[in-house]
Design a protein around this nucleic acid. Sequence first.
DNA 1: TTGAAAGCGCTAACAC
DNA 2: GTGTTAGCGCTTTCAA
Lengths: 323, 323
Amino acid sequence: MAVTIRDVARASGVHVSTVSRAFSAPHLVNPETRTRVLAVADDLGYRPNRAARALTTGRTHNLGLIVADISNPFFPPLIKAAQEQARLRDYHVFVADTDEDPKVEEDLIQTLTKQVDGVLLCSPRLTNRTIERLREEVPFVLVNRRVKGMATVLMDVARGARLAFEHLTALGHRRLALVTGPSGSWTSKEMQEAAAAARDVDVAFLGPNQPTELGGLAAAADVIASGATGVLAYNDLVAIGLIEGLAERGVDVPDDISVIGVDDIVAGRLSRPKLTTIAMPTAAAGRIAVDMLLQSVDSQAATGVTMLETTLIVRESTGEAHT
Amino acid sequence: MAVTIRDVARASGVHVSTVSRAFSAPHLVNPETRTRVLAVADDLGYRPNRAARALTTGRTHNLGLIVADISNPFFPPLIKAAQEQARLRDYHVFVADTDEDPKVEEDLIQTLTKQVDGVLLCSPRLTNRTIERLREEVPFVLVNRRVKGMATVLMDVARGARLAFEHLTALGHRRLALVTGPSGSWTSKEMQEAAAAARDVDVAFLGPNQPTELGGLAAAADVIASGATGVLAYNDLVAIGLIEGLAERGVDVPDDISVIGVDDIVAGRLSRPKLTTIAMPTAAAGRIAVDMLLQSVDSQAATGVTMLETTLIVRESTGEAHT
DNA sequence: TTGAAAGCGCTAACAC
DNA sequence: GTGTTAGCGCTTTCAA
């Protein structure tokens, strides 16, 4: 077995509780004893067993991070940032992928519950009711989902959508289309509301669609049929698929139709034409969500909604309307 | 506090040890008692505390997965698959990002060590010496790195590179270039050896380069200077950057120069031209690595090297040589 | 087949 | 400032 607190105690001639204190309450132990104990510990390669510690303190110093699909390029920057922020706060994070399956998601939360101090739920597929039930067992922070009374990190897609429509309008486009995402999506709903409020333009609503390239590909015909010359797509993947579908039909972007995506994934910078998009602050969302979560772990409370700004990044997939 | 084994024992009129057995050694308990206990447990919403269990069994049922950079599109499919495979085996996985920093990497392993039964090290930046030292503390499986005597999952890049060179040769290219990656990379070394063995062609070695689009972008001038008409790049990101760099200099892909990448990341299918690439079985690697790890957790042993096949995917970035 | 008791590694009152 | 003791939730001998 590995070296335990008892080994350190024996080797440094003090009681285990002194060793314990040397680590978790340094101010309660004589500086000299402390340095000696720590030296011995270091010498022996002692590392506190966090699981054992958790048993008495009730703090595991672990977090759960649950996402629908790790492979969706929207998530990795969020995971990376969350994980790093947690590490800086001396927390480890379990990352779990539900593969878009609510059943898996619920089960995961259940089994994780005892091993973590809190859970970050990103774009959950669970019903509100289930989420509300589960929150009794462990603190949550939601990302990209709104449930009343729960701590949440949101990105201001509505504003992003407004910026997008203004951009298209400024370029002279008057007939626009919104290629929506899955019907249950909060993001998609926000975009629709922004579209409905757009002025001086017609906006056609095309959807729902799968939030993938295939979804965009399949929407190409409808976009053409709508007569729109400016399009806001649910996300970058959809936008890229759409551009491809349009190309297959001999429609050029941006010469014939302008297309804007959402998320600012890396692929958007690499595709041709480079994608004009609404950048989502995913890394910031990850960091902030972790901080909110740790705060609510400490204070038992901390609900509240944090709304993060989005920005429009103009690249090559939008251009002037030719009327 | 949550419901513990004691609550279940009390509510079902048996001793805690019986409840324990009902869960972890069902065959040792009377079927009737068992069903009753389980019913009560279910009723109370009891879930065994894995951390407490780990304290006596020595098995945490957790795994660590350490990668250099979650945002690198090479990793998410691997993480996703590993995580899912682990879940099927009733394991949870800590995912940690070292941000390419060996110091962080070592530290992470150290603190994770006590909480996991094994660690998956993907493309580690540590020295062999350090890896060998750390393996004393916890079982490892290495992905994309070879250290003697350690369990390893490798992808057959050398064969992939051969296929790439053969493809280029068959298209009539005679002057080739290999745009290499970071100097310490096992993958890069494999590619170089394959290149050196290629027949009937000249291969220029260009590098080392950063394993990113910027690396590819910066290599464009050298590629042109080399006079090569067929290029194998370290990975897809480099290939995409290279294609961009060539375009900036008025060189068309594939008309003037053919380019092949490695990894088959999603962006490669979305970029223009669509990238011809060597597909790496990252998901399979993740699954297999987890199985190897669990096996070595059980048997204390299990070293061995698994080599996975790679395949050439021909898309649009390669074409016939115009000579 | 079940109960009793010890103990995993650690922390947290409580004494001294 | 340090030692003693009990106990976190669970498993695992050992008896019965």
